[in-house]
C-alpha cells in the first residue's frame, strides 16, 4: 500500500490543480454571464442565457466526451488537461451564473431606488449597494457549487487524465488490490474535500452574521 502512495499524491495534485483552475474559470465565466443577463445587454444576454441552459442540463461526462473526442474532428485538437479545465469551467460557469444571477435578482428594487434618491448614479448604486449585498447573498450557493465541482473532477478519468479515479482504476487493473486501492481513493478524496467543506461552513456562517447580525 505504501508503494502506491506517491502515485496517489501525484494524482491528487493533478486533481487539485485542474479542479481549482476550473473553479476559477467558472467563477469568472459565471460573473460575466450573470452581469450580461442582469443588465439585459441585447444580443449577449441571449447567448449567455442559452449557454447557461445548455450546460446546466447536460452531464459533465457527456460534455467532456464532446469536447475531447468530438471537437478535434473539426480540426481543433486540445490536450486532455486543457479539455478538463475548459469543460469544468464551462459547466461550473453555468452553475455560478445561476447563483450570481438569482442573488442579484433577490436584492429588492427599493435598494436601488433609495440609493438613487440619495444621489448616487446608477453605476454607483450598482457597485456600492447592490453588488456587495448580492455577493454575500450568493455565498452559500457558491460554496455548494465549489464542492459540487471538486466532486465532479472524478469524471476526468474518462478522458484519460491521470486523476485519483484513474489511478485507483489502474491499480485495480494491475495488481487486483481492490480493497487497498479503493481505500486510498476514499482517503484522498476526504483529504481534498473535508477542508473545503469546513471552510465553506465557516464562510457561510460569517456571511449570515453580515446579513442578519450586528
Amino acid at each position: 500500500m505504501i508503494s502506491y502512495f506517491p502515485k496517489y499524491v501525484e494524482a491528487f495534485w493533478l486533481t487539485v490543480r485542474i479542479g481549482w483552475l476550473g473553479i476559477f474559470l467558472s467563477i469568472v465565466l459565471g460573473i460575466v454571464s450573470a452581469f450580461t443577463i442582469y443588465f439585459r445587454i441585447p444580443v449577449l444576454s441571449r447567448i449567455t442565457g442559452a449557454y447557461v441552459e445548455i450546460f446546466r442540463n447536460t452531464p459533465l461526462l457527456v460534455q467532456l466526451f464532446f469536447l475531447y473526442f468530438g471537437i478535434p474532428k473539426l480540426g481543433l485538437s486540445v490536450s486532455a488537461e486543457t479539455c478538463g479545465i475548459v469543460g469544468m469551467g464551462l459547466l461550473g460557469g453555468s452553475y455560478m451564473a445561476e447563483a450570481f444571477r438569482s442573488s442579484l435578482g433577490a436584492i429588492p428594487k427599493l435598494q436601488k431606488e433609495s440609493a438613487e434618491a440619495l444621489g448616487m448614479t446608477s453605476f454607483q448604486a450598482f457597485f456600492r449597494v447592490i453588488l456587495p449585498e448580492a455577493w454575500i447573498l450568493s455565498i452559500p450557493a457558491v460554496v455548494a457549487n465549489v464542492i459540487f465541482l471538486l466532486k465532479e473532477t472524478s469524471v476526468f478519468s474518462a478522458i484519460s487524465l491521470m486523476d485519483l479515479m484513474f489511478t485507483a482504476k489502474d491499480l485495480i487493473g494491475l495488481y487486483y488490490d481492490t480493497t487497498e486501492a479503493l481505500f486510498m481513493l476514499v482517503v484522498f478524496y476526504i483529504i481534498m474535500l473535508v477542508p473545503v467543506s469546513a471552510a465553506g461552513s465557516i464562510l457561510e456562517k460569517r456571511a449570515r452574521y453580515k446579513m442578519f447580525g450586528e
Binding site: 466532486k151 479503493l182 481513493l185 476514499v186 473535508v194
Partner: peptide, 14 residues
Amino acid sequence: IMPQLVLLFLAYFG
C-alpha cells in the same frame, strides 16, 4: 463529500 463515482466504485468493486 464523496463523489458519486467513488461511491459507485465502492459499491461495485468494493
